[in-house]
Structures are given as structure tokens and as C-alpha cells.
């Protein structure tokens, strides 16, 4: 006899007696055979059981100054996988010399792919970036998204003498550290 537990946002419940069960999964975008554990003993006194499941897709984030595949790569931009609210999961990925950062083991499905959320948390210090939560779905096992990190806007800095209103300082330097 089979008992189906519907999972929504990571949680599901069911009425079960104490016994040992074989476990299978049906999770769109994920490798169902990777459900772990594949057997569970429901025992007296324990009413919560945890499982995990893996995906096999690869999502590449390609970061350039103009957001195109041929643009100047931005090295050192960091990203996290998140949920829809922006909570971070896993370790950060960072763009390499090609401007590529890779999320391994992400879900994909031709017709019913789950949404993948991510956000950028830093660039290289010389480029602007969008820190809001982004999302995508993958219909094939590999996918590349182009992301723009434009060069920081040109700003005009003026330095004047504090005791002679508007008298410009003829030479010198200012150092701004972020």
C-alpha cells in the first residue's frame, strides 16, 4: 500500500502507522532516484522526518559590462541561490576570468521546471550591479544567462578651499575607499 505525501514549500504531512517504508519521489526538475533516504522507519516518539533530493542541471551566469555574450567580462562578481524572498542557500559562486559563475545541481524540466531564484551580492568594486532577486526556469540541462554589470558612472568631484568660498584647489588628490 502506498501513501502519497504532497510537498509544498518543503513540507508535507500524512497519517501513518509505525512501520518501515520504502520511499520514492515525484519532484519535477529533480532526479527522483536520488531521494535520500530511500527507506524510512516510522517509530514511536518521532513525528518528523527529513529527506533530500538532487538535481543535475547547470546554470551559468555570464557577467559582462554590456550584458552580452561578447561584452567585457567582469571578474569577481558573486551570486547566491535564494528563495523568492531572497534568503540565501548554499555557498557563493564567483565569476572567473571569462565572467562565468556556475550553479551546479539545479533543477530543469521540459514542461514543469521549478523556478530558480538567485541574487548578486557583489561585483568587483569597479562595476555597478543589480542586487534584487532574479529568477529563471530551465527547460534543458544547461543554460546561460547574460548579466550586465555596467562600469561605475562618471562622477565629478570638486575640491575647494574651506576658508575662501568656491576657491578651487589647484592640485592634489582624494582617495575614496569602499
Amino acid at each position: 500500500m502506498a501513501k502519497i505525501i504532497n510537498i509544498i514549500d518543503g513540507t508535507g504531512t500524512g497519517e501513518l502507522i509505525n512501520d518501515t517504508y520504502t520511499v520514492t519521489a515525484s519532484v519535477p526538475g529533480y532526479e527522483n532516484s536520488s531521494i535520500n533516504p530511500s527507506s524510512v522507519s516510522i517509530v514511536e516518539g518521532t513525528n518528523s522526518y527529513s529527506f533530500s533530493i538532487s538535481a543535475t542541471g547547470t546554470l551559468t551566469l555570464h557577467v559582462t559590462e554590456d550584458g552580452t555574450s561578447t561584452g567585457t567580462p567582469v571578474v569577481g562578481a558573486t551570486f547566491f541561490r535564494t528563495d523568492s524572498t531572497g534568503t540565501e542557500y548554499g555557498t557563493a559562486i564567483t565569476t572567473d576570468t571569462n565572467g562565468d559563475a556556475v550553479f551546479d545541481n539545479v533543477p530543469f524540466d521540459q514542461t514543469n521546471a521549478p523556478v530558480i531564484y538567485f541574487k548578486q551580492t557583489a561585483s568587483d568594486g569597479d562595476h555597478e550591479f543589480d542586487s534584487t532577486v532574479q529568477n529563471t526556469t530551465m527547460t534543458t540541462s544547461t543554460s546561460t544567462i547574460e548579466i550586465q554589470n555596467p562600469v561605475g558612472a562618471t562622477r565629478t568631484i570638486t575640491l575647494t578651499d574651506s576658508n575662501y568660498d568656491n576657491l578651487p584647489i589647484s592640485s592634489g588628490s582624494l582617495t575614496l575607499t569602499n
Binding site: A2, K3, G10
Partner: peptide, 12 residues
């Protein structure tokens, strides 16, 4: 990271 939607099936 919670799985958004799916099913776990338990077989006695």
C-alpha cells in the same frame, strides 16, 4: 533550500 512542490511516496 526547501523543495517548492513535489511528492514523496511511502510504500509499506
Amino acid at each position: 533550500l526547501p523543495i517548492k512542490k513535489g511528492e514523496i511516496i511511502l510504500w509499506q
